[in-house]
């Protein structure tokens, strides 16, 4: 498999994404949204949609998208994660993955709307049930649920699309990760469209996309800790010269670089339609979530007391890390899936 062969176009994409998110998702910009329970910077999202084509990044070209690969999507999400971008990018790319795996005119119509910037959110907690083509129930922890026009309801064996403008109520939820907006969505006999396709591959793609975003946050948490260890002086020397700190950071380096290899190998498996994806995707998802938690947690430890202040960014990464442990499923369930796919049997 041709993993890790980075093209010049991908290098340019990486630089463009880095430039964009460093501007629209600077620490000041992220903080400006912390107190907003539902929203995000609409202006920045419009630029992402229209100037960079990020909403439709992986939407096929004939549906007004950019037709990019999953590796390209991972590159952009890594940078979004690095800058804790809070707009509906992850939701858009995840929805793209689901809709592309469920081909048909209904999906095409939704993909075209997505590429134009319509927010499509995902319901993943199993709170909805279907009866005679109508969806009812309360689904929680819906990322971008307050601002979404369409909700994709993910089940293990079926998927539905619901237009949220009809027969739905949404209530923002105060999220521990203030950089990401969650909502409760209640459906009462909402008309739903069935999406048919390779749902297993769709779930695997969601794992790869989320892993890429987690990786970016982990890299930044490490970079912040390393920079601080070089600059903070105690006992007459930079604290990064102490082996207790140095070894912590060296171990983190190994984890973050390994997570990067996992993400881009998984993205290549997704692009090439490789059978390996079924093992690599849950592996990458579980691993990057744990690596981010370690990076954010050890990052706070390295920063010492300053990390306990609201004004320092370390807690923002820690919040992301804690969210990464539960949002769209936990690392343990993904490892369990990997164990099954490796052919391990359960005790009856």
């Amino acid at each position: 498999m041709a993993a890790f062969d980075v093209t010049d176009e991908q290098r340019a994409l990486h630089a463009a994404a880095q430039g964009f998110f460093s501007e629209v998702s600077s620490e000041a910009a992220v903080r400006a949204q912390l107190g907003e329970p539902a929203g995000f910077d609409r202006g920045a999202w419009q630029r992402a949609v229209h100037e960079l084509g990020l909403a439709g990044l992986a939407v096929p070209v004939d549906l007004n998208g950019s037709g990019a690969s999953w590796t390209d999507a991972a590159i952009v999400l890594e940078e979004a994660g690095r800058f804790l971008y809070g707009g509906p990018l992850l939701s858009s790319l995840m929805a793209t993955a689901v809709l592309r795996e469920c081909p048909g005119p209904r999906s095409d119509a939704l993909l075209a709307r997505l590429a134009d910037g319509a927010v499509v959110a995902l319901s993943w907690d199993g709170g909805c049930s279907v009866d005679d083509g109508l969806l009812s129930g309360t689904t929680r922890y819906v990322v971008d649920g307050s601002s979404a026009e369409v909700l994709l309801v993910l089940g293990a064996d079926d998927m539905y699309a619901v237009d949220l403008d009809t027969a739905a109520t949404r209530e923002p939820q105060l999220a521990f990760d203030r950089t990401r907006k969650l909502a409760v969505v209640t459906l009462e006999q909402s008309p739903a469209v069935v999406l048919d396709g390779d749902l297993r591959r769709a779930h695997d793609l969601l794992d790869v996309l989320q892993a890429a975003e987690l990786l970016g946050s982990a890299q930044q948490a490490l970079d912040l800790a390393v920079a601080y260890a070089k600059e903070r002086v105690q006992f007459g020397r930079a604290i990064g010269s102490f082996q207790a700190i140095k070894h912590l950071l060296a171990d983190l380096l190994l984890e973050v670089e390994s997570a990067r290899s996992a993400v881009y190998y998984a993205a290549a498996a997704a692009d090439e339609g490789s059978d390996e994806l079924e093992r690599v995707a849950p592996l990458a998802r579980a691993y990057t979530a744990d690596v981010l938690l370690q990076a954010a947690s050890d990052g706070m430890q390295v920063h010492g007391g300053i990390s306990f202040t609201w004004e320092h960014p370390a807690h923002l990464y820690f919040r992301r890390a804690k969210a990464g442990q539960q949002l769209f499923g936990d690392p343990r369930s993904h490892r369990e899936l990997l164990a099954q796919r490796l052919g391990l049997r359960e005790i009856a």
Binding site: V226, K230, R237, A238, G240, S241, Q243, A250, L253, L254
Partner: peptide
């Protein structure tokens, strides 16, 4: 770990 910390991460 010393080598990684010093040569890759640039720690003193």
């Amino acid at each position: 770990r010393n080598i990684l910390g010093e040569r890759v991460l640039g720690l003193p």
